[in-house]
Simulated assay, not measured.
Amino acid sequence: MSTARELTLIVVGLPADRAVEPGDLSLALAGAEAADLLAGGRLALDGDRLVPGDGPASDARLLEEAFAALVRRQPRETVEHWLWRRGEGLAEAYATDLRRAGLLVHPHRHGLRLRSAAVEPADSPEYRRARDRLVSGEPVLAGLLALLTAGETTADSGGGSPAPDDSVSTVLAAVGNAVTELEAARLRRDVEEAGFDNIWRG
């Protein structure tokens, strides 16, 4: 299973007090796709620019869509630009994909809301493998989740995870910057809306 699918399952399974914004998750999912493409030899980095490779195809449909979406002309796309472009609506795309596969179900409790319907991970081998990978300290999955949850992973996650390689570190850093930028934009919007409301209240 791709890192992006595993990350979606993990995030949707978080308790309500650790809910992740869909926009933040979308950016992280684009980063997860880039990390998997790097690991599969289908992508390389030239500095911070994405260079498509010729590694073997995967059986993950959305990951194949990501590979097809890579810019193949010069100048190559930066990691940051990829995250914003590829990430648009990506959380909902993965949620839909996992619902169709029976890996997300309507919950008996409230979880992350994507659109109007709350969903939670089904009790499946895929979800258990994702949690096992997270608890093992696998650097990509653990690193992306930490960026989305202010440094937290899981309550039972062990420390001492191996460091990612330089290319993956570049992707993780770009995800962190993008999530921070998106949060700053939300805060500015909230301040502006509060100011607008105060004008009307007089």
Score class of each variant (00 low, 15 high):
Arg113Ala: 15
Val135Phe: 10
Val11Phe: 05
Val119Pro: 00
Leu27Ala: 12
Phe67Thr: 01
Glu64Asn: 03
Gly202Tyr: 10
Thr170Arg: 12
Arg133Tyr: 07
Glu120Asp: 05
Phe67Glu: 09
Asp132Ala: 15
Arg188Trp: 14
Ala34Asn: 02
Glu6Lys: 12
Gly111Thr: 10
Leu7Tyr: 08
Leu187Met: 14
Ala35Thr: 11
Ala30Leu: 09
Glu183Gln: 14
Gly55Met: 09
Ala150Ile: 05
Glu77Phe: 07
Ala35Glu: 04
Val191Glu: 13
Leu112Lys: 13
Ala95Met: 03
Tyr127Met: 13
Ala28Asn: 11
Thr96Asn: 07
Glu192Gly: 06
Thr154Pro: 00
Ala4Arg: 10
Val105Asp: 09
Ala150Glu: 15
Arg49Ile: 01
Ala184Asn: 13
Arg99Trp: 01
Ala194Asp: 07
Glu193Val: 13
Leu37His: 03
Leu103Lys: 05
Thr149Lys: 02
Ala91His: 09
Val79Gly: 02
Glu120Gln: 15
Ala150Lys: 14
Leu98Asp: 05
Ala68Thr: 08
Gln74Leu: 15
Val11Ser: 10
Val51Gln: 08
Ala91Asn: 10
Gly137Asn: 02
Leu70His: 08
Gly23Thr: 12
Val105Gly: 03
Leu50Pro: 08
Met1Leu: 13
Asp48Thr: 02
Leu103Tyr: 02
Gly31His: 00
Ala91Tyr: 06
Gly53Ile: 04
Ile10Asn: 09
Thr170Cys: 12
Gly47Asp: 10
Gly176Pro: 06
Thr8His: 10
Ser167Gly: 12
Ala35Trp: 01
Leu144Glu: 04
Val191Asn: 01
Glu126Thr: 12
Leu27Val: 08
